[in-house]
Computed example of a mutant assay.
Amino acid sequence: MVKRSVIYTENAPKPIGPYSQAILVENPDKILFISGQIPIDPETGELVKGDIKEQARQAIENLIAILEAAGATVDDVVKVNVYLEDIKDFEEFNKVYEEYFGHSKPARAVVEVGKLPKGVKVEIEAIAIFE
């Protein structure tokens, strides 16, 4: 039987719309679907207003907080989708991304989009599979 649970942590920003931070599916392995994370500081609720590197770091830290709340780690991530406001930020984004995912190298897509919520430069979503 498939079990579905909502994952929520105060260590990542509250959703800014009608969605969950993540959904955990157990069948029997656990599959975690993490909603897009933007660079909001969960302690203050404020946007990180820095460059792409600062914003990417906060978005990834938010994603990691949700992974940890579900009992997973970065090593369990199998797929990442990245949305950049400007594809010219690709190289700078990769420098930060590699600090967190360089050893595990999950499958990934990076696309440029017209606009992101709250005018941020980056949004990141992920899927993790673990026991």
Rank of each mutant, 00 (worst) to 15 (best):
D86N: 15
I40T: 06
A56T: 15
I66Q: 01
G119H: 08
A56P: 00
V110C: 10
A70E: 02
I87M: 14
I7G: 04
I64L: 08
A126T: 01
I64S: 00
A12L: 06
I66Y: 02
A69P: 05
G36I: 02
V74M: 05
G114A: 12
K118Q: 13
A65Y: 08
S5G: 02
I31Q: 09
Q37D: 01
N81V: 10
A56Y: 01
A126P: 01
K105S: 13
K95I: 14
G102M: 11
E112P: 02
Y8H: 12
P106C: 06
P13Y: 13
K53E: 15
E125C: 13
V74K: 12
E131T: 05
L116Q: 06
L63V: 03
I38Y: 03
R57P: 00
G102R: 08
N27H: 07
P28D: 10
V110K: 03
G119C: 05
Q58I: 15
K105G: 05
Y8T: 12
T73F: 06
K3F: 09
K88N: 14
A12F: 07
K49I: 04
F33K: 03
K79A: 02
G17Y: 09
V110E: 05
E125M: 11
Q21S: 06
K79M: 10
V77F: 03
G102D: 05
E46L: 15
I52H: 03
E46C: 09
E131C: 06
E85S: 14
E26L: 08
K88D: 14
A72W: 05
I23W: 02
Y19R: 11
F101T: 07
V96K: 09
I16E: 10
G119R: 06
Q58A: 08
T73N: 13
P15I: 05
K30V: 06
A128E: 03
D75E: 14
L63A: 02
D29V: 12
F33M: 08
L32W: 02
G114R: 12
Q58H: 03
L32F: 04
E54S: 15
A65L: 11
K30S: 14
K53M: 14
K115H: 08
A72S: 12
V110G: 03
E26R: 15
I124Y: 02
Q55M: 11
L24H: 04
E123P: 00
D89K: 10
V82R: 00
Y19G: 02
P28E: 10
G17H: 03
G119I: 09
E112I: 11
I129K: 15
D41L: 11
M1H: 10
K49W: 04
A59Q: 03
T9C: 10
V6A: 11
L84D: 00
F33N: 06
V48I: 15
V6C: 05
V25F: 13
F90R: 15
G50V: 07
E43V: 12
K88Y: 10
D89N: 15
S5H: 09
D41G: 08
E54D: 13
I87Q: 13
G50A: 12
K79H: 09
R108L: 14
K30I: 09
G114L: 07
